Computed example of a mutant assay.
Amino acid sequence: MTQPFAGRGAIDLSALKRPAPQPAPTAAGGGTAPGMSAYALDVNEENFQGVLQASTTAPVVLVFHSPSQAPESTQMADDVADLVGQYDGRFLAGIVDVDAQAQIAQVIAQASQLQQLPVPLLMVFLDGRPAIQPIPGMVTREELSTLFNQLGQQLTAQGITGRHQPLATVPTEGEEEVGPDPRYAAAQDALAAGDMDAAVAEYQKLADANPADAEAAAGLAMAKILQRTQGVDLNAARAAAAAAPDDVDAQIMVADLDLLGGHVEDAFARLVELVRRTSDKERDRARDHLVSLFAAVGNEDPRVLKGRQALASALF
């Protein structure tokens, strides 16, 4: 359903009647709806510019819904608003009610060369531009979770480690405002700088300090993949794997490259088949590496659940 991030045309905002460009959105000024996470807000003409500007920090997910035209689309918008809160600032969700914000819908339709904006519609922006092809139609909560997991993998693979600040909210009594977790800053800075050795070392420290830290484990697994694949030629790696189908090192390398390219299921299938064909130490290596790829993707991802089932079948 998703594609690698790729720059596309910027959105022309000149049709909007709005004040001067706004700063990055805040919940207090952006009309955050009750029940939304700290990384979701309602979009209107006043804050639309600021929402798109926020995509220079990290991706912005826009969801267009219509309570009158497609009541079910509002549930999808609510799911997006809720799910982005699980990624600690990796995404900011902008919820656009096209019934109330017809001018924004018209601008997006014109930019997308559409006569009318389909509802629902999901778009992902990075650096002010659409980062993937727009996704029209209903998307289930499970599919949305898979989408965000895959986009997160692609962000990490491309060294895009920025995070949105949580939108300003008023804490309830006895509660303190919580900012971004600083524990991951050193590892993310190393990824952004292209220093994979340092990134692995920083994530290893976090994983050693707290083995139950799922984000640290996933970050460590992905950093190791990036470390192994630095400077590797994809075509040469595929040719080597094709020439030696039972060479564990060759198959692992292509699986790593496939995962980084977003071909997660292909990576899993390659190693599952390798487990079927090999034995003893080679089989153990293939299995252990596949398990590390599961960690990189995230144990809650539906593709990981299917991959674990396939691995169990191959082993037993």
Rank of each mutant, 00 (worst) to 15 (best):
A185G: 12
E176R: 11
A190F: 00
G179E: 12
L147R: 13
D256Q: 12
D256P: 01
A223R: 07
Y184E: 09
V178G: 01
F148P: 06
H164E: 04
P211T: 07
V178Q: 12
A241D: 02
T161W: 09
A185P: 03
A237G: 07
I160M: 15
A185K: 12
A201M: 00
L260D: 01
A255W: 05
A244H: 09
Q204W: 00
V178S: 10
A244W: 01
D181E: 01
V254K: 06
A186W: 06
L220C: 01
L155P: 08
G231R: 00
A243N: 06
E173D: 12
H164R: 00
Q188C: 06
F268W: 08
E177P: 15
E176G: 09
V232H: 01
A239S: 12
E176A: 13
P182I: 02
L226I: 14
A193D: 14
P180E: 10
A193N: 14
G262R: 05
A242Y: 02
N149S: 15
L259Y: 07
M196H: 13
V254I: 08
Q227F: 10
P171T: 01
V254C: 04
V248F: 06
I225L: 14
Q153E: 13
L220K: 07
M222A: 15
L167S: 03
Q158C: 10
Q150T: 15
Q188G: 08
D246W: 02
L259M: 15
T172E: 05
N235P: 03
L226K: 14
A214S: 12
A216N: 03
M138S: 09
N149I: 09
H164V: 08
D208W: 04
V232K: 09
M222S: 14
V232M: 05
L257Q: 14
A240E: 15
Q154T: 14
G261D: 12
A216V: 04
A186N: 08
G261A: 11
N235W: 02
R270T: 06
T156A: 15
A212S: 10
Y203W: 11
A216K: 03
A250H: 05
D256T: 05
A223E: 02
R238K: 13
T140V: 09
A236K: 15
T229I: 03
A242E: 13
P211M: 02
V232I: 15
L151H: 10
Q204A: 12
A214L: 14
A168F: 06
A267L: 11
G261P: 07
L191Y: 14
Q153G: 15
A250L: 03
A185R: 13
Q251N: 07
D213F: 05
A217G: 12
E265Y: 04
Q154W: 13
Q227Y: 10
L206V: 01
L191A: 10
A207T: 13
A244E: 11
P180Y: 05
A198G: 05
V254Q: 03
T229V: 02
V178C: 00
V264G: 08
A190S: 09
D197H: 06
E173S: 10
E175P: 00
P211W: 05
F268I: 10
R183H: 06
A193L: 12
R183F: 03
K205F: 02
D258I: 07
V248T: 11
N210Q: 12
T146E: 15
G174W: 04
M253Y: 01
A221G: 00
L260Y: 05
T229W: 04
N149T: 15
D181Q: 01
A212L: 09
